[in-house]
Amino acid sequence: MADRFDVIESDERGHRRWVEWTVVVALVAICAVSVLTSREPEPEADAEGPTPAPIRSLTRVESAPNILTARPARKGGDELLEVVFPDGTRAEVRYPAKLGLAEMGSRPFWSAWVDGRFRQFVAPYAGEIEITRGGKPIRNFTPNVTLWPRPAGSGARGQVLLFAFGRWRLALHDVGQGLTFEQRMTMARQVKGRVTKDGYLVLSAGKGVRLAAPGTVVQGRPVGPQLWFGGLGERVALVPTPDCADRARMPAVIDGPGRRGEMVCRGDVLVAVTGPPEFRRTVLDQLRVTLT
């Protein structure tokens, strides 16, 4: 059977009738849009003040990955990559060039407490569109922090605070008992970010917010400053962990449903990896990290 949207040739009379019907349908559509637009109510003012314009996009293409693709140096068959963790700690990562770690791109992760309530800062891989879905925020807390509705399919997660630091976007999801307005405002005002000259995001926090120290574990997972490389398939997490041999725990981003994670300590840095067996072996056997 021919597809219902196939183009069918017709004689001149049929063509003229088709054009006439097209004009009629277009006029009806224009009238309908005008009526609906005139009926659209004015947006309600927020109970705590008007809602300013949303945060500007990461780039002109909102779906651009929220990652940093740094340029490594070459030394023989290896690549040397200078990285900066979100607490400002610097390290040199050395690995076989075939691994392509730098090309995978990295993004920061960290956690914090506000009034004793634990929350995580995650850089959405797909950028702000992953949170905003092209919509409008519920409200602005500061010029760089907006509040967004709970994303569809996010499970038990609630509303999202979206932070903008230069080109970076960080999402803070509400879980369990949601943060109060005052706690959200504290987060928005007291968490600061700067971008290093090589593109890495470094965070700091003021009164009322406590950032997780390296090696901190919550519910069996490390929650201190981290760098995550890769996306849906191959992933590598670098996690500064003092006394790593005794305190190593698998990061949640690596160990999940349908993924097999493995890890190894390189001094005071935990290296965790998931992906195909050969990729995992190369990372575990040949990737080196040196804090500088």
Rank of each mutant, 00 (worst) to 15 (best):
S106L: 10
I131V: 15
T180H: 08
A70G: 13
V202N: 02
M187D: 00
R167I: 09
A152S: 12
I131F: 10
N140C: 13
A91H: 07
R189D: 10
R184E: 14
V195G: 08
S106A: 15
Y125A: 08
V122S: 01
R169M: 08
V202P: 02
Q183P: 03
L80I: 15
D115F: 09
Q120D: 09
G153W: 06
V202S: 04
P124F: 07
R119S: 00
F109P: 02
A171C: 12
W110Y: 15
L161K: 03
A152K: 12
F141T: 03
G105T: 11
A102L: 03
K197F: 12
G127P: 06
W148V: 03
Q159T: 11
V145K: 00
I138Y: 05
A97F: 05
L203S: 04
K98Y: 00
T89P: 03
R169F: 11
G116L: 11
G155Y: 08
T196Q: 14
L101W: 06
L80K: 14
L147S: 13
R71S: 14
W148L: 00
P137D: 02
A164W: 05
G206S: 13
G77N: 12
D198A: 08
A126K: 07
V145D: 01
R71D: 14
V93I: 00
R184W: 04
Q183K: 04
Y95W: 12
N144L: 09
T146L: 02
G127E: 03
V195M: 11
Y95N: 07
T89M: 15
L68R: 06
D78V: 10
P137W: 00
G88E: 12
A102Q: 03
L170A: 13
A152F: 10
Y200D: 09
R71F: 10
D174F: 03
R139E: 11
W110T: 10
V83T: 10
R94I: 09
P86Y: 02
D78Q: 15
P137C: 06
R184V: 02
W168K: 08
R139N: 07
E182F: 11
P65D: 11
V202C: 02
F163K: 00
P149H: 09
T132W: 05
L101V: 09
S204E: 14
K98V: 13
F141D: 01
Q190D: 13
S204P: 07
G100P: 01
G134P: 04
S204L: 08
